[in-house]
Computed example of a mutant assay.
Amino acid sequence: MDLQIRHLEAFVTLREEGTFTRAATRLHVSQPSLSRTIQDLERILDCGLIDRSAPTLTLTANGELFLRRSRAILTDLTELQAEMRALVTVRVGFAWLLPTEWFAATRTRYEEHGGQLTLMRSDNPTADLSNGTVDVAVVRNIRQSTGSIAWRRIGVEERVLAVSVHSDLARAPGLRWADLARHRLVVNTESGTTTPDSWLDPDPDRETVTCRNFDEWIELIAADRGIGVVPALAIHRAPHPDVVYRELPDIPASTLYLGWRRTPEPARSTRLFIDTALTVPRD
Score class of each variant (00 low, 15 high):
Val229Met: 06
Leu248Asp: 02
Pro204Ile: 05
Pro252His: 02
Ala223Tyr: 00
Ala253Leu: 09
Leu220Ala: 03
Ile235Tyr: 12
Glu219Asp: 14
Ala223Asn: 04
Trp217Gly: 10
Pro241Trp: 04
Pro239Phe: 05
Arg206Asp: 04
His240Val: 07
Thr208Cys: 03
Trp217Val: 07
Pro239Thr: 06
Ala232Met: 12
Trp260Asn: 05
Gly259Trp: 01
Ile251Gln: 01
Leu248Gly: 03
Pro241Lys: 03
Ile218Lys: 14
Thr255Cys: 02
Cys211Arg: 07
Ala238Arg: 15
Trp217Leu: 12
Trp217Glu: 12
Asp203Phe: 04
Thr208His: 00
Glu219Trp: 09
Trp260Tyr: 06
Glu219Gly: 09
Val244Gln: 14
Arg262Gln: 03
Ile251Cys: 05
Leu220Pro: 06
Glu216His: 12
Arg262Phe: 06
Arg206Phe: 01
Ser254Phe: 02
Pro202Ala: 02
Asp201Arg: 13
Pro231Ala: 12
Tyr245Cys: 09
Val244Phe: 15
Ala253Lys: 10
Arg206Thr: 02
Tyr245Met: 10
Glu216Lys: 10
Phe214Met: 13
Arg261Gln: 10
Ala234Met: 15
Glu247Gly: 06
Ser254Asp: 04
Tyr245Phe: 06
Asp203Lys: 11
Cys211Tyr: 08
Arg225Ser: 09
Leu248Ala: 02
Leu200His: 11
Asp242Val: 14
Val230Asn: 08
Ala232Ile: 13
Pro239Leu: 04
Ile227Ser: 06
Gly259Cys: 03
Phe214Trp: 10
Glu207His: 03
Pro231Asn: 12
Asp215Trp: 14
Ala222Pro: 13
Thr263Gln: 07
Trp260Cys: 04
Arg225Asp: 03
Asp215Leu: 14
His240Cys: 10
Thr210Val: 07
Leu258Phe: 01
Val230Glu: 07
Ser254Glu: 05
Leu220Val: 06
Arg261Ser: 13
Pro202Lys: 08
Arg261Ile: 09
Leu256Gln: 14
Ala232Gln: 15
Ile251Ser: 06
Ile235Asp: 09
Ala234Gly: 15
Asp201Val: 14
Ala222Lys: 05
Leu248Arg: 00
Val244Ala: 14
Phe214Ile: 13
Ala232Ser: 13
Ile235Lys: 12
Val209Tyr: 08
Arg237Glu: 15
Val243Ile: 08
Ala253Gln: 14
Thr208Asp: 00
Thr255Asn: 11
Arg261Glu: 10
Thr255Trp: 01
Trp260Thr: 00
Thr210Trp: 01
Ile227Gln: 05
Asp201Met: 03
Gly226Phe: 05
Val209Pro: 01
Leu256Gly: 07
Tyr257Ser: 01
Cys211Leu: 01
Asp205Gln: 15
Arg206Ile: 03
Thr255Lys: 06
Glu216Ala: 13
Asp203Cys: 11
Asn213Arg: 03
Ala222Gln: 12
Arg225Trp: 02
Arg206Cys: 04
Arg206Gln: 10
Ala234Leu: 15
Arg261Lys: 08
Asn213Ser: 05
Phe214Glu: 13
Ala223Met: 04
Thr208Ser: 00
Ala238His: 15
Arg262Asp: 01
